[in-house]
Design a protein around this nucleic acid. Structure first.
Lengths: 346, 346
DNA sequence: TTGTATGCGTTATCAC
DNA sequence: GTGATAACGCATACAA
């Protein structure tokens, strides 16, 4: 029923091989022949059979995007996923999404689960979301399986020589601090990201170095540990705001969810924002614009990151070598209503 | 290098066909033979070649989840997607995600784009997100292509006889109203969903009928048109709150994003929430818990919807007929801090 | 520039 | 219960 390459060839009066050449865009075909074949393709509504193609060529044209289930639920992952799919489609690949099930416990079980997925589906390559993109054990496993990958938001150096995309979190964190210091703030608190987050460590480093450079001594309770969640930001802000003598005029949270928690805690404490307290987040997630006041934050070039990583991976699949192994992307400070000048000292 | 079914068969001392039977779990195999084959599968690390399987059986084991790019960015879509993938994996299918590119303009172009995607990838079936799940033109196109589908949040009746999952938005809307009326509110405003949303129409109907049943006359500016976005909710709330004489004590927004806009507008107006104004949303999206005060809303059983739709689709693919063509799921009212008794009248 | 023969790994068909 | 053989639709290698 569905037309095959043989049908196309017959209709065009050429051999199957020639039809194949035309369909795959090879150039050693006379223009007139090409036209005949293309006409046949059109009139027959021919669509290549990927299974047959894959079987004959021993390829799958499959690329997987892998992240843990936590990350999978985020808008970040969705945007990345869509960027990957876009590039895959253009290059004739199919993109498979894989979220590591929550039921998988322990690091080695996780590595094995990912390996099983990639091996079982016979993908040609994978795009890894953090923290997988920094997982050396996983990288070794994939190397043993001969599965190329590209890493997103990678922090560590890259002994495996696979392409990685990084953002300059240290610089962006210092951009945030320059903004706050420029407004006149000096009592600035910081809520740390989850201790496992490498990016988070750079954000903290940016805060601390900027404070040091400005000659400001960080009071004991100005730095609180968070865990990336709204709730942890809420708690941390409560602790920070509890002090009355050295209460900060600004709180810089290492991500937007925690910043949302800060804003809630501030509302709860009856503070008027941003007049009495400035708040900054990090990520420019959807909620940043849906808070009151709208959140000043830092935006990752998510689409570019997704597309570049996929491009580099596909290039690697085609050539067998990585021309580019590392790309660092800069981020933008998005200034909204949650930051203002600090209140005048009495 | 990679073991094939023939290798397995040879090692087990049986024919390829028998090995195939074991791998595919057919029952007409003697237990002792089965064990031998299973041992060979294990020791050889055999993994079935999907391309070969697909070529021989003329199947693809592919199911696509289709939504427009707007919906794709939402947490709702992400959750649905993951639920679909879960069921696909269990049933030996692969799930492909497809978001209609923003560049596609016009309804017929959209229908054609979806048809092209599904036809080109040779998926066996599709799960359709709204508003595609209510698009009769698309349904006809898919019928012509002989592609079965399952629809999510379908409102219209179902001439095509494909399985659809609906939620009872009228009832849930009345649940919300019962909650507000029970607290003592009588001046209740409503912000409508996007005019194209069928579900939204039921939510409005629930509001209007509950008001009528309670014997309350709806003032002119209490009902405002929204467009599902935060910004539209913000604007609508500004309009509603502008009236001083008949200012409502509660605002019911047809989704959470708009409710977030209401909360922002209320903060901007200097209102104390929930004391001076109660706010209710709809959807229980992530931001519901990240607002201050946390939002009272209605939760869809998203995971169940995703899993049930996929199950029904797969059953249809296997049997060729739909045992069940319609499932209605109930939703839960989630009461949080954004609703309270109205202020006492002076 | 074009064509022919062969095989990819699996299932379907039919036989035993 | 089990096995032999022929497809499935395409690409590869080589030939013309």
């Amino acid at each position: 029923m569905t037309a095959t390459l043989a049908d196309v060839a017959k209709k065009a009066g050429v051999s199957a091989k020639t039809a194949s050449r035309v369909v795959n865009g090879e150039d050693s075909v006379r223009a007139s022949t090409r036209e005949k074949v293309e006409a046949a393709v059109q009139s027959l509504g021919y669509r290549p059979n990927l299974a047959a193609k894959g079987l004959a060529s021993k390829r799958t044209f499959l690329i997987s995007f892998v992240c843990n289930e936590e990350a999978a639920a985020s808008t970040w992952a969705t945007q990345i996923h869509m960027g990957i799919l876009r590039r895959c489609r253009e290059a004739g690949y199919q993109g498979l999404f894989y979220a590591i099930p929550k039921s998988i416990k322990g690091h080695s079980a996780m590595v094995e689960d990912v390996a099983q997925h990639l091996w079982g589906t016979r993908v040609e390559g994978a795009v890894l979301a953090p923290p997988l993109s920094d997982d050396v054990v996983l990288h070794k496993r994939l190397q043993a399986l001969d599965i190329p990958w590209a890493g997103l938001n990678t922090v560590k150096d890259n002994p495996s020589n696979m392409p990685i995309i990084r953002t300059d979190d240290l610089k962006s964190s210092r951009d945030v601090m320059a903004h706050l210091l420029g407004l006149g703030h000096r009592k600035i608190a910081f809520i740390c990201a989850h201790p496992d987050s490498k990016d988070g460590a750079f954000r903290e480093q940016g805060y601390r170095s900027a404070m040091r450079d400005a000659g400001i001594i960080i009071e004991r309770n100005w730095v609180q540990q968070g865990f990336n969640s709204f709730a942890s930001g809420f708690e941390a802000a409560r602790t920070i705001l509890a002090s009355t003598d050295q209460r900060p005029t600004a709180i810089f949270a290492a991500n937007d969810d925690m910043a949302a928690g800060v804003i809630s805690a501030a509302h709860e404490a009856g503070l008027s924002l941003p007049k009495e307290l400035s708040v900054v987040g990090f990520d420019d997630s959807v909620i940043a614009e849906q808070l009151w006041p709208p959140l000043t934050t830092v935006r990752q070039p998510v689409n570019q990151m997704a597309e570049t990583s996929t491009e580099l991976l596909i290039e690697r699949l085609k050539t067998g070598t990585n021309r580019i192994t590392g790309v660092t992307m800069s981020m933008d400070l998005i200034i909204r209503g949650s930051t203002a000048e600090p209140p005048k000292q009495p």
